[in-house]
Design a protein around this nucleic acid. Structure first.
Length: 263
DNA sequence: GCGACAG
DNA sequence: ATCTTGTCGC
């Protein structure tokens, strides 16, 4: 797949103000409600797929790793994509591109967007849905990496983050039971009316011991997906591990490919 | 000045 | 995110 909005592709040469201005454009173009019918049950369950007509949807997980040069300085980013259909991997691709800027909270898409788009161009199948490691609408300008990629590609996207960038949970998120979700609403750090629902803390896995617990994932709409569906999809795809399977596999593939590139 | 900060 | 082996615990 390739960008349908080349004008909005993240450019690391921009000034910080220009980057944030672009993010406001992205947020304005983003659709934070369900735009396509995505049945979470058909994502990973082959039986549900067989029972209904047509092919099950293709879901892609995207994750990055980084390579160092001889000095130990990070100089390249590697983006890995794992595409799944009916619970099975149908394609894996990766791309390596030079690293342009350091990590700056809020500007992740300008650091990692290049290799992601390069890897997605190498992908031969057309995903119906993409999951990213990072935020979507849970972002200062409501334009996290999942939203940015979603608008540039005009594809349904979901952000899956392991920690909360901004916003505020409506209730305690400690030690939630498996399958639970807690709404995340905009606070004064988010460029949205206070109280706006921007995502969910989603507990995909949990221990049963009283002294230790697993932190939830922070799931938010990227583009063309609403917050409830985003949470439903992540729960449906996280069958045996904390991370939804496409993202977990992309995570592993990013490490595997990095080792291969190093040799 | 202080605090907060995806990967 | 990254440098890294084994190891403690359910």
């Amino acid at each position: 797949m390739e960008p349908v909005r080349p004008d909005l592709v993240p450019d690391a040469e921009l000034s910080r103000d220009e980057m944030e201005a672009l993010q406001h454009e992205i947020a304005d173009a983003a659709v934070f409600v369900d735009d396509v019918a995505i049945d979470p049950d058909r994502l990973s369950n082959p039986l549900a797929s067989a029972a209904s007509e047509g092919e099950p949807p293709i879901v892609a997980g995207v994750d990055q790793s980084f390579l160092q040069d001889g000095d130990g300085t990070e100089d390249r980013a590697l983006s890995a994509v794992v595409a799944m259909q009916g619970g099975e991997v149908i394609e894996r691709v990766y791309a390596v591109t030079p690293l342009e800027i350091p990590y700056i909270p809020g500007l992740l898409a300008f650091r990692e967007g290049g290799p992601i788009l390069a890897a997605l161009e190498a992908l031969s199948v057309e995903p119906d849905l993409l999951l990213f490691d990072g935020s979507g609408r849970i972002h200062f300008q409501q334009a996290g990496i999942a939203t940015h990629m979603g608008v540039v590609l005009d594809a349904p996207c979901i952000g899956v983050a392991k920690s909360l960038l901004c916003g505020r949970p409506r209730s305690d998120v400690e030690n939630l039971p498996e399958g639970a979700r807690v709404a995340i609403e905009a606070n004064d750090r988010v460029d949205a009316p206070a109280g706006t629902l921007i995502g969910y803390a989603v507990q995909t896995r949990q221990y049963d011991s009283p002294d230790r617990y697993i932190n939830p994932l922070y799931v938010s709409p990227g583009h063309r997906v609403g917050p409830e569906t985003a949470a439903d999809v992540v729960l449906a795809l996280a069958s045996s591990y904390k991370l939804p399977e496409p993202v977990r596999l992309a995570d592993g593939y990013a490490d595997e490919a990095k080792r291969a590139v190093r040799d």
